[in-house]
Design a protein around this nucleic acid. Structure first.
Lengths: 220, 220
DNA sequence: ACCTGAACACCGTTCAAGT
DNA sequence: ACCTGAACACCGTTCAAGT
């Protein structure tokens, strides 16, 4: 439509924003170079002016999603475990708001600036809490594994091509899934179905996080 | 080439095996309905005789990978934590042998028969260890989150279109990644780089697993 | 430097037809 | 029931050309 020109009419950020809009409105499968380009009004191949390939766009999307969560709370004066809990919960609700994003999360190394910032602040907190640099590094890695793993598994259950459902609906979905487990071959799983279904939720997320944080609440 | 016939010349298993071969030889991106079909010698659309769609094939591949790990050790007479450690390590090395598989792992609910079997045996162990059904359910979920999350993050670092590298090489890859972190803006991350790089390994995997299992080894 | 149109080599899936 | 060839509506990416 518009006349071509040498001026830079867009930015990397505009591309990423468009990708995120497509992700939210039409699901992960609909995020293509062509759909992104159409949304910002350029030819598909013009995207390659801003990013080397599609994977780079997706990495930038993931980094932007991580950046949606404010890290200010990590510098507060509550107990350090509470600060980590708060920021983990925030990251979880940020990411669950974008179904399909979780798949992207686990499929590429997280080396974007916002992801690095997150890791750095986590190390700050753990250092302040008295951990040696080595233990802080290990614990921060274990925390990230748990947080992202939990989010990815929660998101895996929902249809990525539809808008993000609320927690209640996700629990119901899971209940339906477990209802199909044959009780004769998997008796324990069937018996635990109700608990399993309910605990794809804030409560189970925090329960596991506390285990990693070192607050055992049950006998071992 | 061959003449068409009404006989069932293949099986679901043959399709899954072919998909796994393509995954290992040419990477995750090369796993297409067409490449799978070509490998077993049928037309692409004949795959739809065995599976409703591509996603179902991938789910079956994931279930088969989970089944590669023997669960016999879970019924042994060592301490229950040791049995869980052993089976977690086995699952990890099984899955890391197939790079790109980890992405599949997190992108769909794990409701295949082998995955259910794994969960059931885990509940057996935890029940035998004295956990209430509710705590056993929560802990088994937390363990699965940690195990799969750790594997997915480890696998995310490697190029999925090339054969799986050994642990040494994965550590070196990670070291290179951290070497690029600017020390002035992310001082703690840069300082922890060597630890972070080394602990994408059996050692860090077990360290975090022990946290979830409840064996805190550092002050909290 | 940034954009375009056209093309290349692919996809997943559906359909009508054959045995 | 299981397979085929042909087609549909897409992909990511590259290239030569325009401003």
């Amino acid at each position: 439509m518009g006349k071509p020109g040498p001026k830079r009419t867009l930015s990397e950020d505009a591309i990423v924003a468009a990708a995120l809009e497509v992700l939210d409105e039409r699901g992960a499968d609909a995020v293509s170079v062509r759909s992104i380009a159409a949304r910002v009004g350029i030819a598909p191949n013009a995207v390659y002016t801003y990013f080397p390939d599609k994977a780079a766009v997706l990495r930038a999307v993931v980094d932007r999603l991580i950046g949606e969560q404010s890290l200010a709370v990590l510098a507060g004066d509550e107990p350090w475990q509470d600060r980590i809990r708060t920021v983990a919960l925030g990251l979880r609700s940020s990411l669950l708001r974008h179904p399909g994003a979780a798949t992207l999360l686990m499929s590429a190394p997280m080396d974007g600036p916002r992801a690095l910032e997150f890791g750095e602040r986590l190390l700050d907190v753990l250092s302040e809490a008295g951990f040696t640099p080595e233990d802080a590094a290990r614990l921060s890695y274990a925390l990230i594994v748990y947080i992202l793993g939990a989010i990815a598994l929660e998101a895996a259950e929902v249809d990525p091509s539809r808008p993000a459902p609320p927690e209640e609906e996700r629990i119901a979905l899971r209940r339906n899934g477990f209802a199909k487990v044959p009780a004769d071959t998997f008796p324990r799983t069937a018996a635990a179905a109700e608990v399993m279904a309910r605990y794809v939720s804030t409560e189970q997320f925090l329960w596991g996080l506390d285990r990693v944080l070192g607050r055992a609440t049950i006998p071992s």
